[in-house]
């Protein structure tokens, strides 16, 4: 069993769901949640929902957060400020490309690795060339 969960933050519900689907297929058994889209269902971020999802996942263990671009990253940082203090250390942002990072993180999480290793795996994906994968 793996204790580290993934959280995919995106402007788009469709994009987040696609990343979740792809990463889950590569890493069965890993909990992958999404917090995506604006409160009205359109494109955007809902910081309060991101924070609530972080807390929900952190209750069970470490959380590796991946985000698409711009406001999703700022929204993740703002959400971290809202997360209950006793849970905050269990939630880490991985500064990584969303697709490659999510897959790398999910695969490593499926081995039962800890939060540091999962975040590191995601961030290592940053420099990956498509052709050498």
């Amino acid at each position: 069993m793996s204790a580290v969960a993934l959280l995919v933050v995106s402007h788009s519900r469709t994009l987040a769901e696609g990343v979740r689907e792809l990463a889950a297929q590569m890493a069965p058994g890993v909990r992958i949640a999404t917090a995506a889209g604006a409160v009205d269902g359109g494109l955007g971020v809902d910081v309060v929902r991101i924070a609530a999802t972080m807390e929900e996942l952190a209750e069970a263990g470490g959380v590796c957060v991946l985000a698409d671009i711009g406001s999703s990253v700022m929204g993740t940082d703002a959400a971290l400020e809202l997360v209950r203090e006793d849970l905050r250390a269990r939630v880490r942002f991985a500064d990584a490309p969303l697709v490659e990072g999510a897959i790398a993180a999910a695969v490593i999480a499926s081995t039962g690795a800890g939060l540091d290793a999962v975040v590191a795996a995601a961030e290592e994906a940053r420099g990956a060339r498509k052709r050498s994968l």
């Binding site: 604006a38 359109g42 955007g44 309060v48 406001s71 809202l82």
Partner: peptide, 21 residues
């Protein structure tokens, strides 16, 4: 702050939300 963080959606949500927070 909390209302803007939840409802603004774009970059100005986290920014104004943080500002008022």
């Amino acid at each position: 702050a909390m209302t803007l963080l939840s409802t603004v959606g774009g970059a100005s949500g986290p920014l104004y939300g943080t500002f008022f927070l």
